[in-house]
Design a protein around this nucleic acid. Structure first.
Lengths: 161, 161
DNA sequence: CTAATAAATGAGACTTATTCTCATTTATTG
DNA sequence: CAATAAATGAGAATAAGTCTCATTTATTAG
C-alpha cells in the first residue's frame, strides 16, 4: 500500500513534469514533440545544471543524439536554456525558469558537479558599480556577467573519491 | 635612416622577446626548443589573451598543429598558461607572467576580443567574503574564482561590423 | 667538440563533440 | 481526416584536440 502510494506520487511528479514541459513549449510557440518533452523532463527532473554528456546518457534510448542537440538549440533560441563551459571543458546546460533568479555557478573540479548559487544583493550591487567603471574605462557596453567559483565539494560526495 | 632606426628598435624588441622566452623556459627547467620559443614569442607579442585559432594562424608556417597543442600543454603544466573558454565557445589562452596581477576578463561578443581587467580591491575583498559564506553553506572548498563580463566593444573596432 | 641518449617534433591518423543531410515520421491546420 | 510543414533518426561530415611513430633536435658525459 505504502509502495503503491509512493508510486502514485512518483507518477504524479512525472505527469506534472510532462505537463510543465508541454506548457513551456506551447508558451514559446514551439511545437510539442516527444523528444522535446523528454529533454525538458530530464532537465526539470535533474534540477541542477547538467553536462550534455550526462543528459545524453539519461536520454540515450529515447532521443537520437542529433535530435538532442537540435532540441537544445531550440531551447537556446527561445531563451530558456543557458549553456556554458565548465572549467574541465564540458558543456553544461541549465533551464532558465521564470522563478529562477539571477545566480552564479560553483564547480567541483573533482566530480564535475555544478551548483547554482545566489550571491548577496550588496555584492551584486557592488559588482554593478565595478562594471560601470569598466564600461567607461574600456569603452565597452557590458550586457552580462558571470561569477564562477571552482573548488571541491569536500564532504560525503559519492562521486568524489 | 629613420626607417633603419625603427627597424633596429623592432629587431631589439624581437630579440628581447626571444630572450624572455628562453628565460621563461629555463627558469621552469623546460628544454629550449624552437617551437616553444615561437609560441612564447607569439603570446608575448600579442600581449592579450588570444584564441587558439588566432594563435594557430600566427604560427601556421612555423609550428605544427600537434606541436602547438603540445607546447600549450607544457606551458599549462608549468603553470604559466591560463586556459579558458569564451562565451562563444572558443578556447582562449594567456600567459601568466610574474608581474601579472589577479584579474578578470571582458569579452566582446561581436569581434571576440578578450581584455584583461582588474577589479578594485574592495570588490575582491567583498567577493572573498561571499565565497567564505558559500563555502560554509555548501560544504565546499573554493580554490579559485572568475568574473566574466560579456558585452560589446562599442567604438572604432576594426573587427566589429 | 662530439657522440650517445633522451626528449621534442612533424605529419597525419585517430577520437570526440557537434552539425549536417536526407529519407521517413509526426504535428498542426483547415 | 488529409495535406503540408516541421521534426526526427541514422549516420555522414566537420572541427578541435590528442595520439602514433619515424625523424630531428637538445642535452650531457667524456
Amino acid at each position: 500500500m505504502r509502495i503503491y502510494l509512493i508510486f502514485l506520487k512518483f507518477e504524479s511528479i512525472i505527469k506534472t513534469m510532462s505537463n510543465s514541459s508541454r506548457k513551456i513549449l506551447s508558451e514559446h510557440s514551439v511545437s510539442i514533440t516527444n523528444p522535446r518533452i523528454l529533454v525538458l523532463e530530464a532537465l526539470l527532473e535533474f534540477g541542477n545544471p547538467i553536462t550534455i554528456d550526462e543528459l545524453q546518457l539519461k536520454l540515450k534510448d529515447s532521443v537520437a543524439k542529433s535530435t538532442l542537440y537540435r532540441v537544445l538549440n531550440d531551447l537556446k533560441r527561445i531563451n530558456i536554456l543557458n549553456e556554458f563551459t565548465s572549467p574541465d571543458n564540458s558543456t553544461v546546460v541549465e533551464l532558465i525558469l521564470e522563478d529562477h533568479p539571477h545566480h552564479h555557478h560553483l564547480f567541483c573540479s573533482d566530480c564535475g558537479e555544478v551548483i547554482d548559487v545566489e550571491l548577496s544583493d550588496e555584492f551584486e550591487l557592488m559588482l554593478t558599480k565595478e562594471i560601470e567603471k569598466i564600461q567607461k574605462n574600456f569603452n565597452f557596453e557590458i550586457k552580462d556577467h558571470r561569477v564562477e567559483m571552482i573548488g571541491l565539494c569536500t564532504e560525503e560526495c559519492a562521486n568524489c573519491k
